[in-house]
């Protein structure tokens, strides 16, 4: 089972290596946000320094790629429902969850590598955080990716249509983003919005990231975020494997 997951992962990484342009393009957006948006936040931080703004905004920029990158991961799989690749794999000796897991693992690795680049840019701009914070943040990125990518593959297999899928993803992305405190911390929001945000997994991820970057490792949002994404990751994986079975009609 593990062997098959690694095989699919290897195959996917091979494809990525042959065509690395897209993931590089994918990090341009959060880098631009760091460069052109984080400076605006200096007006709301206590001492008005760029470093404070970076502590608040870098976790958000990271979550942005976790969400925008991984939520679209499933698009590639829609074509595979039509060109017979999934049909062939489904009747091969492959362990079925590995078909999804191998791809998800690729997305997680890509996400961690992209995060490193973004952390590098933030460091160049003056962000100073410890190694434990970096390590924990990368782990959090990995579990966020686990959830977002599984969700995306599940959607792709259930919807099986590029237009429908892009409508659905767009429909959910904007409220998820606005209710997560991605751009501005939720603490500046009215009460009802803060309550609503608690039901948004992304909000907990952003909060946990900010706590780590502020060196506040005892903050309860950290275990909440990890637990939440692990559970959601397993649920969405089960769902996408089910959808794989439904492909046969």
């Amino acid at each position: 089972m593990f062997r098959h997951t690694m095989l699919f992962l290897g195959h996917e990484l091979g494809t990525l290596r042959r065509n690395p342009a897209w993931p590089i393009l994918g990090i341009m957006q959060p880098v631009l946000y760091l460069l052109l948006f984080a400076p605006l936040l200096t007006s709301i931080t206590p001492n008005g320094t760029l470093e404070e703004a970076l502590v608040v905004f870098t976790p958000a920029a990271l979550m942005m790629i976790a969400l925008f990158g991984s939520m679209f991961a499933g698009f590639g799989m829609i074509n595979e429902t039509r060109n017979g690749v999934l049909e062939r794999l489904a009747v091969s000796q492959a362990w079925r969850p590995a078909i999804i897991l191998g791809r998800v693992a690729k997305d997680m690795i890509m996400l961690v590598l992209q995060s490193l680049v973004i952390l590098g840019v933030a460091a160049l701009m003056g962000l100073r955080i410890g190694l434990p914070a970096i390590g924990l943040m990368l782990l959090l990125m990995a579990v966020t990716g686990l959830f977002a990518a599984n969700l995306s593959y599940g959607l792709a297999l259930a919807v099986r249509d590029e237009n429908g899928m892009s409508q659905i993803v767009q429909f959910f992305l904007l409220p998820l983003m606005l209710l997560s405190g991605l751009m501005l911390p939720m603490s500046v929001a009215p009460d009802w919005m803060q309550t609503a945000a608690r039901f948004n997994p992304l909000y907990h991820a952003v909060e946990a990231g900010r706590a780590m970057f502020a060196g506040d490792y005892s903050d309860t949002t950290i275990p909440i975020a990890f637990g939440l994404f692990l559970v959601l990751g397993v649920l969405t994986l089960t769902w996408s494997v089910r959808s794989l079975r439904k492909l046969a009609g």
């Binding site: 042959r18 074509n79 595979e80 060109n83 049909e87």
Partner: peptide, 16 residues
């Protein structure tokens, strides 16, 4: 384990 299957659509990864 005992079968080979070549579907109507072919089923090969276009990008690899």
């Amino acid at each position: 384990e005992k079968i080979g299957y070549v579907g109507q659509a072919g089923g090969i990864d276009d990008n690899a």
